[in-house]
Amino acid sequence: MKKGLLLIERIILESLEKKEKNIIELAKDTTLSSSVISNVLPHLMMRSMVNYQQGIYHLIRDSYSLREINAGETIGDELKELFSSLVNRYFQQEEQQRGVGTQLRLKKVWMTPMDEAQFNAHLVELERFLARVEQETRQRDNCAPVSEQRVVFWGHSEYSQLINGSLMSV
């Protein structure tokens, strides 16, 4: 069974992708405790994703393991964990916070072909907006902590396909 990344491993790799760091800098960038980071890093080193020199951790950018963890089913496990965490977080918030902090929306609607075309156009617009934000962030040599990023989900499917999928998982 191929082993994917936990969220805490992913955020550490994302932090090192920006710039090599020591443990204290990683803790500041990721908001993970130094002790958790110290436990995670040896596993990442064993998987040849990170190396260590004179107190500084570096991402091994051309690592085969890094390419593997972004493939198919291993990414799926991470997405499930991320989405599950979002759902838990949303419901842990007080009622009045739900429009402000973590947000979650679900709709089941019938769409005409015209509605579907308009909906897809909105999604393309959303993708363009997020790509632009990403581009502008890169251009301004962003120093904000990796933990301060907003995680945005979107996706849709036919209701019957989702139901069939859940039946097939047992």
């Binding site: 069974m1 994917g4 936990l6 805490i8 002790s35 958790v36 110290s38 436990n39 995670v40 596993h43 496990d77 499930k80 964990e81 097939m168 998982s169 047992v170």
Partner: peptide, 25 residues
């Protein structure tokens, strides 16, 4: 089913591993 068991196994493995990393210190 086999598929269901594999999915459950993957979930449990991830939870156990996360727990180990959190409390190994």
């Amino acid at each position: 089913s086999q598929k269901g068991q594999v999915e459950l196994e993957r979930l449990l493995q991830r939870r156990v591993y996360l727990s180990q990393l959190q409390y190994q210190a």
